[in-house]
Simulated scan of single mutants.
Amino acid sequence: MYHRFCIGKLIVHTDYQNKGIGKALMIEIEKKFSSCSKYLLFTGEITPNTYIFIQS
């Protein structure tokens, strides 16, 4: 059983940002590793687009 899942980087190309792709990727990761109680995500920087992942 995993307690933490570390995601080194989750990056969406700028041409495809703000289309829900990052969120969809996180949803699939959470499904695949549903036994985890915590997800550690590195996005490179905190922006309004990445702040949503901090709150989740």
Rank of each mutant, 00 (worst) to 15 (best):
M1R: 09
M1W: 00
M1D: 13
M1H: 01
Y2D: 09
Y2W: 09
Y2P: 13
H3P: 03
H3W: 09
R4T: 15
R4I: 14
F5D: 05
F5M: 14
F5P: 00
F5C: 11
F5S: 07
F5L: 14
C6F: 14
C6S: 14
I7L: 10
I7G: 05
G8Y: 11
G8Q: 12
G8N: 15
G8K: 11
K9W: 05
K9I: 07
K9M: 13
K9L: 13
L10I: 14
I11Q: 00
I11K: 02
I11V: 14
I11C: 09
V12K: 02
V12D: 00
V12Q: 00
V12I: 08
V12W: 00
T14H: 13
T14E: 15
T14P: 12
D15I: 10
Y16E: 08
Q17H: 05
Q17S: 08
Q17A: 04
Q17F: 06
N18V: 09
K19S: 06
K19E: 10
K19W: 09
K19R: 14
G20C: 08
G20H: 05
G20F: 03
I21E: 07
I21W: 08
G22I: 04
K23D: 15
K23V: 10
K23M: 12
K23I: 12
A24Q: 11
A24T: 08
L25N: 03
L25T: 04
L25S: 02
M26S: 06
M26F: 01
M26V: 05
M26W: 02
I27Q: 14
I27P: 04
I27G: 01
E28N: 10
I29E: 01
I29Y: 01
E30M: 14
E30I: 08
E30K: 15
K31H: 13
K32R: 12
K32Y: 08
F33L: 11
F33G: 05
F33N: 11
F33S: 12
S34C: 10
S34M: 00
S34G: 11
S35I: 09
S35V: 04
S35G: 14
S35Y: 08
C36E: 00
C36K: 01
K38R: 06
K38E: 10
K38A: 03
K38G: 01
Y39K: 01
Y39M: 00
Y39E: 03
Y39D: 07
Y39G: 03
L40G: 01
L40A: 09
L41E: 05
L41W: 04
F42A: 15
F42P: 08
T43E: 08
T43N: 07
G44M: 04
G44Y: 06
E45S: 11
E45F: 09
E45R: 09
I46L: 11
I46V: 12
I46Q: 11
I46Y: 00
T47H: 02
T47C: 08
T47A: 09
T47R: 06
P48M: 08
P48C: 07
P48I: 02
P48V: 07
P48L: 05
N49S: 13
N49M: 05
N49T: 03
N49I: 03
N49W: 07
T50K: 02
T50D: 05
T50L: 06
T50F: 01
Y51L: 15
Y51M: 15
I52A: 05
I52M: 06
I52S: 06
I52Q: 12
F53G: 02
I54S: 13
I54E: 10
I54F: 14
I54N: 10
Q55S: 13
Q55M: 12
Q55D: 13
S56Y: 15
